[in-house]
Design a binder for these strands. Structure first.
Lengths: 229, 229
DNA sequence: GACAAGTCAAGAGCAGTGCTCTCGTTTTAG
DNA sequence: CTAAAACGAGAGCACTGCTCTTGACTTGTC
């Protein structure tokens, strides 16, 4: 499958990966803002200007790291969902795995779910990998609905304009009522709000280990969605 | 009340305010990461080293801006709560005003609720102003409870370790059941998760104006808390 | 009212950054 | 075999936060 590739092509692909790996290593230590092209080059024994043959700018390197981070988190979520049959348990497992990944890779989490990097505008190419995690969660709901274990809730019907926007979610979760999709968006934003609060220090001094709260919140929101035990 | 202040003291206090104002102006345009001491000094017609007499480092200037931002948001929340008698309406009004402030001052919002600035460790002096908004929300619940309009919910009792952590909230909301305080933390994290998603571009391409979703989510969560209409 | 002590802004300088351009060298493709 | 393309090295530009020194100005105290 590498046929037709010249030695230069292979070396280029390899070095591109090495640059990303070194950048990720720096990211883990210093954070996105402190990620320095010169330091990456230094680590690889290159001169800084050489990196520009592989990434036209620092922003392009960041974009690559963002996409990789979305993919890594998406893969974790998919794996967690596969190992659970019961929809409620699957939902909770995915929530747990997202939090665990975020805690293990705080700077990568901040890169994708934190405030945007200064002067950086995420290109459209990041939208698709960003949807991967959402796709997993919606799939769990669709499966629950299909197997008839999604308890009907008293959730109100969303207004017409909101229903229109929720249609995007409906494509990934056929059969799930719009009222549940609205609550899915609520649960989704709660999940990432909670993780962000934990990682960004908003819980400092009172909810310091957030384990108990996390379990309570995800459990209540699963019920809120109609994923009863 | 300025008695005893020398001309030098007054000049110093004034210039300190001017530095913060100029920094805030830059913050609004460029974001926290791009905030440059040299640019602030340039705007004020000073040389960069002169700023170090007023703020020992860039981080200290950031800390001052963070505290100011927390205070500004806290003041908005307090004002919004005062103008509403009905607890549910007060809750919703505070949520709306928080979102409005965040949208008007996205970089200041990111500074306090986004990912921490690289290499910056928020000092403890930011914890107290950070609690101001939470204090307003908890006060609304306490008032609702006191006037008997907080509908008892089916919320489960929190586990013992979680109950211990929620005690911090209980001090600001005397009489409110722990089960409701747990849900308050859920609603709180949902609120800021939702606003962060909106501001940081996670809604891009599908929930673009988030007005409808915001109204729906805050309404459902108010009910979730027992703040019935 | 003079004077030492403290405070001030300015300027030079250090080490670091992203990025551009040029220059030989090496590898590729025709 | 040769022209073209790609490569890494290096110098250099404009910028950053921060430190240190220098000379002028304001204080509170004799």
């Amino acid at each position: 499958m590498n046929a037709g590739q010249t030695a230069r092509d292979r070396a280029r692909a390899e070095l591109t990966q090495e640059i990303k790996a070194a950048a990720r290593r720096q990211l883990a230590v210093e954070g996105a803002e402190r990620l320095s092209l010169r330091a990456v080059a230094r680590e690889l024994g290159l001169v800084s200007s050489a990196l520009y043959r592989y990434f036209p700018s620092r922003d392009d390197l960041l974009t690559a790291l963002i996409i990789d981070a979305y993919d890594a988190l998406g893969a974790e979520a998919e794996a967690a969902a596969k190992h659970q049959d019961d929809p409620r348990e699957a939902w909770l497992a995915v929530c747990r795995v997202i939090r665990a990944w975020a805690r293990q890779h705080p700077h990568e989490y901040a890169l994708i779910y934190g405030s945007p990097v200064a002067g950086y505008q995420a290109p459209d190419s990041t939208i698709q990998p960003a949807g991967r995690v959402a796709f997993v969660l919606l799939g769990i709901l669709a499966q629950a609905q299909a197997s008839g274990v999604l308890t009907p809730t008293t959730a109100p019907e969303p207004s017409q304009p909101l229903a229109e926007q929720l249609k995007v979610l409906a494509d990934a979760a056929p059969g799930v009522p719009l009222s549940v999709l609205a609550r899915t968006a609520i649960a989704w934003t709660q999940l990432f709000g909670m993780i962000s609060f934990e990682l960004f220090g908003q819980f400092a001094g009172w909810m310091d280990p957030a384990d108990e709260f996390f379990a309570e919140a995800t459990g209540q929101l699963a019920t809120f969605l109609g994923l009863n035990r």
